[in-house]
Amino acid sequence: MRVTENSTMKMVVAMLNQQQERVNTLQQQVSSGSRINAPSDDPVSAQQVLNLKGLLAATDQYSRNIQTGTTWLNQMDSSMSNMNNVLTRAKELATQMANGSYSAGDRRSAAVEVIQLRDQMISLGNTQIAGKYVFGGFVSDQPPFDATGNFNGTEDQVNIQVDQGSKIAIN
């Protein structure tokens, strides 16, 4: 093949361009730290990466949901264990007073304590988290128990999403 000065020059320029382009691609990968910087770098993997990114965002959300749920459940747990104490005390009083050896005065003071215990129960039943009444079912903006202990809430379960397609009740 006949070779001229110009054809050598053009070949060198073309090759240099090619190498420069490769260097550029590699620089981009190195500086961004990822192999895919545009969908055209690898369309199939790009789609998978995006699907996973979506999944990751959803998982973040689920973990936020779970945190909210945990707060609710912890609060309820402590309220209910307090209720348990109150009930134990009430039962104790009831058992004591059932045996006829206590005077009318004793019984009166026991009655006062039971009224206090009832108020305590009502107040525990009206436990709030961030202004929401946790034991009210779907009625969360008003106290579920009134002063006489009547239940004004609903029996609905408040569900949160903890994973794709799985919900748990947090009340």
Binding site: A38, P39, S40, P43, V44
Partner: peptide
């Protein structure tokens, strides 16, 4: 998105 990548490719 993937389609745009394929087209460019």
């Amino acid at each position: 998105v993937s389609k745009s990548g394929v087209a460019v490719q």
